[in-house]
Amino acid sequence: MNAINFPANQPPDRISASIVPKMTARNIDVFYGAKQAIRNVSIDFSREHVTAFIGPSGCGKSTILRCFNRMNDTIEGARVTGEIRLDGVDITSPALDVVQLRARVGMVFQKPNPFPKSIYENIAYGPRIHGLAASRADLDGVVESALRRAGLWDEVKDRLKDSGTTLSGGQQQRLCIARAIAVDPEVILMDEPCSALDPVATAKIEELIDDLRGRYAIVIVTHNMQQAARVSQRTAFFHNGAMVEYGETSMIFTNPVQARTKDYITGRYG
């Protein structure tokens, strides 16, 4: 099969006709005040594939990621234009309720940010605010299954009352992933989730991402080229606020179409 590379700034085709995209973005521009951080980006992604966003620092990876759960709303002076659909429904309208959107589109941050609460309460947080558990027993079940899916249950099942901040960095990050999946979202956005972790903890997270594929549409921003190659099936390369190239990960890394992509992945970029 050939690499499917889209010329920049054109709506990507279905990568494979049988796959229905979970989220679609068209012609996204993002401004911070007068400064434009994202220029006319269009991209789709689906449950079947983990999508990696790569690109040099400051190229706008975090910015575009935050469009998908409207976290840019929390940034003073940030303005997003264009169209983003989740299951075909536009989510950019100001009338849309971000509370529900964010229950469906979870996010994991670069630095593990557990709440200064117990491990249990960290996981129970989302189900509580969204009213997902009818009883305490229900909630216990939700917490356990989220921790299990995040591969953390065996490590913490005896210390659920301890503060989440007492865990190691890698455990904290898996706690944050568990926290995100406790509300059973459809999409999980991860912004450099391993950049603060050591190689062993990183490997665990990568394994976890692989396990979660298929159940959630996962987008991961990473600076680590090997990581993108390991965990993702689709890769988008960003540069200067624009999406330069998007396609199958294996092709992007072995046979990129754009010279700039090639320069970046071979390390020739500044």
Binding site: M71, V99, P116, A180
Partner: peptide, 27 residues
Amino acid sequence: VPDAVRDGSYAMGATRSETVRMVLVPA
């Protein structure tokens, strides 16, 4: 209280007052 903690709460779909009440003030 680090912004990251607050953002974590918003990203879970918590409202401002839920974030204040359940995360920021306890923290």
